[in-house]
Computed example of a mutant assay.
Amino acid sequence: MSLGNTALRDEKITVETKNLQCFRDERCLFAPISEEVRVGGSLEVKGRNGSGKTTLLRALIGLHRQTRGSFSISTSFLYQGHKLGLDESMTPVENLVWFQALNGRRANQSSAFRNIDFLGLSEKADTPCQFLSAGQKKKVSIARWLDSDKKLWLLDEPFTSLDSESSNVLVSIFDKHLVNGGSIVYSNHIDAVYTPSSEVRLEPVELEDIVEC
């Protein structure tokens, strides 16, 4: 287990796994992992396509039940999967206001415009999302995170579809969230964009692990 930044060792643990494995159709996807993420810390889950990164994130929030080992989450969380959860008939601003309402917050169009502008989408603020590019849709989903009060972010491939400039903006969003007492667990299969507190690579199951499964 890698804790990364030693300054985090006295902080509260928000996510912990102990010998966790995930299965699909009785097939073990990866060797056991034991990791912990603390307040102010981030964990990058690496691995090739099909290695189980998405399945692991879904298992952590209870959407995938075929597991062995143990895991726990001790704080409120936001989960963003591959599906962005946008209503494509609505504009970016309308989607953000809708997201605010879904989270029990008062609709704040000014905040929605501000977040859209921060992601460089002010010219598309009133354009239905169905007419946006994949990268622009991704930025709309990221803008929603800025309105969330959840301390833990669980993100599936957050840097996918982003150009280098947008990736740098996302890095700054990550840094601010961690400084404000948040935690992040995210999957990634592209070249290094962000330097996390720690990382884990999902490895194929070896023979001895197959016996254990």
Rank of each mutant, 00 (worst) to 15 (best):
R38T: 04
R68F: 08
P32M: 00
S89A: 13
K139Y: 03
S187C: 08
D87H: 11
S122T: 11
F23G: 03
A134W: 06
L207K: 15
R105F: 11
L170R: 00
I142C: 05
V37C: 10
C129D: 01
E157L: 06
Q109Y: 12
C28M: 09
G4A: 04
N115L: 06
G50N: 06
H189I: 05
T75Y: 05
T91M: 04
A31F: 04
L170G: 02
G69K: 04
L86E: 04
D209T: 14
G47A: 08
I190W: 05
L20Y: 06
R65Q: 14
I116V: 15
V15I: 15
R27G: 04
E36M: 13
L170C: 03
V185C: 03
S166F: 02
R201M: 13
C213E: 09
S74T: 15
K150Y: 10
L154S: 03
N180D: 15
K12F: 05
R58A: 06
E35P: 04
Q21L: 09
K137C: 00
L119H: 00
T67A: 11
H82D: 10
K151Q: 15
T14R: 09
F118T: 11
H189D: 08
I61M: 02
L119S: 00
T54Q: 05
L152M: 10
E199V: 09
K176S: 14
Q130L: 13
Q130Y: 13
V39I: 15
E94Y: 00
G4V: 10
D149H: 12
R144Y: 07
L57R: 01
A143L: 00
G120E: 05
F131M: 11
G81T: 06
G47Y: 05
L3T: 12
L162T: 04
R58G: 06
V205D: 05
S183P: 03
W153K: 03
A7G: 07
H177T: 06
S148H: 06
M1C: 12
I61V: 15
D163C: 07
I13Q: 06
N5S: 10
N103W: 11
V205L: 03
I210Y: 11
I190F: 09
D209S: 12
L63F: 12
I73G: 00
V15N: 02
G81K: 03
N188Q: 14
I190V: 13
N95A: 10
R105M: 15
C213A: 15
F131K: 13
S172P: 05
E203K: 13
T127E: 08
S183H: 01
S198L: 05
C22L: 06
G41T: 05
R201S: 13
D191I: 09
K150H: 14
K12T: 14
V171R: 07
V15Q: 00
C129P: 04
N19A: 12
S183E: 01
I33K: 00
G50H: 07
V45T: 05
L63S: 09
A7D: 13
S74F: 00
H82Y: 11
N188A: 12
Q136V: 07
I190C: 08
